[in-house]
Computed example of a mutant assay.
Amino acid sequence: MTRVSDKVSQQVKELPEDTSFGYGQLAIPKQEYLTAAKALERLQKKGVIKKLAKGIFYKPKKTVFGEKKPDEQQLLKPYLYQNGKRTAYITGDYLYNQLGLTTQVPAVMQIASRNRRIFVNNGAVKATPVKSYVDVTDANYQMLGFLDAIKDLKQIPDVDIENALAIFKSRLSVLTPAQRQMVIDYALAYPPRVRALLGAILMDLNVKKGIDKLSSSLNPLTTFELGINDSLLPTASDWHIR
C-alpha cells in the first residue's frame, strides 16, 4: 500500500510550477490530513513548496529573476476545490475584467458555489461568497461565468454595451454545437433576462437549435430593460429587449 507521504510527494511532483493548492485538491482522505501535513512540511523544508496561508501551499516557478510570485487567481484556486473536485469558481468584476468587459479590478473578489459559502481573507487576497445557479464542475465553470456576465451586464463598472455584445457573440460563436446546448441548458436556471439576451444573441448568430427552450421559458408579456436596441442587436425586439 502506498504511504500517505509518498502519495503527497507524487501529487505535488505532478503539479505544474506556478500552481497553488490545498488539501481539497489532493486525493487524500480527511483522516490522513495529519500525516499529509507532515509530508507537506518536509516538502517546505526542502524548498519544493511554500506555505501561503493555513492549509494553502504554492509550488513556485523558478525564473532567471528568482521565484515568480503567485497571482490572485492562483491564491484563490485552492478554495475552489473539495476532495480533488471543483465546486466553485471566481466570478464578479474580477472575471469580467478578464473577459474584457471592464477595466476595473475589484479589491474584493467573488467566489460562486452551489453548496459552499467561501470567505477568503489571507492578507494578499480577499473574496466573498455568492451562490451559483447550478452545481459547479471543471466542465461547466467557464460557461457559468459567461452566463454571470450576461446576468450582471447592466451592473458591470464602465461597461460598453456594444463591446460587451461583441464579446458575447465571439465567445458563443467558437463553441461547438454541444457546448452551446450546455450553455442553453444552464441558462434555464438563470433569471429570465439572461435567457432572453442569450436567445437574442444566438438568434443573431443564426443558431436555431435549442432557441425554443429559451423562448418557451419566458413570459411573453415581460419586457427586459437592458439598454439594448435593434441597432446594437438586430434580434433584441424579438426577445422583448430594449
Rank of each mutant, 00 (worst) to 15 (best):
R193L: 12
K30S: 14
E14Y: 11
K54C: 00
K126V: 14
W239P: 08
K169M: 05
F119C: 08
A88T: 00
Y79N: 08
K61H: 10
M1W: 10
S9A: 15
M109P: 00
D185G: 03
L26F: 10
Y186C: 00
I241L: 08
P29G: 14
L80F: 01
S113H: 05
L52R: 04
D238G: 07
V207Y: 13
K46F: 06
E162M: 06
A139T: 13
Q82M: 07
L165W: 05
N163V: 09
L75W: 14
Q11M: 14
T102Y: 03
K131G: 07
Q179G: 00
T176H: 02
V4A: 09
P220M: 13
Y94N: 08
L75D: 05
T103A: 11
N97I: 03
F65Q: 13
K54E: 08
K209Q: 15
L34H: 15
K54S: 11
Y141D: 09
A107W: 13
K30H: 10
V194R: 08
G55I: 01
A200T: 09
D238T: 12
H240N: 15
L80T: 00
N229I: 06
G47H: 05
L26A: 05
T91C: 02
A200W: 08
V64K: 14
L153K: 05
K38I: 12
D212A: 13
A88Q: 00
N97Q: 15
L175V: 03
K151N: 15
L147D: 04
H240Y: 09
L76N: 02
S170G: 01
I241D: 03
V125D: 05
A187E: 02
A164S: 09
D160K: 12
V159A: 11
S231V: 15
D93Q: 11
E72R: 12
R86V: 02
P192S: 13
Y190T: 06
G92Q: 05
P220L: 10
K61A: 11
L218Y: 12
K59H: 00
N206M: 14
G199Q: 08
P70F: 02
G227R: 10
L172M: 05
K13P: 00
A39T: 07
A88R: 00
L198W: 02
I228Y: 09
I201R: 07
T137L: 07
V48G: 00
K126I: 14
L232W: 10
I184D: 00
A178S: 08
P106L: 06
G145N: 06
T128Q: 10
T102H: 02
Y190I: 03
Y58A: 03
Y94W: 10
P16A: 14
K209F: 08
G24R: 03
K131W: 09
K213H: 11
K208T: 15
D6G: 04
V8A: 11
F224L: 05
G55E: 07
R86I: 06
V108K: 13
F65Y: 15
M182N: 11
G227C: 11
Q73N: 13
L43K: 09
L43E: 13
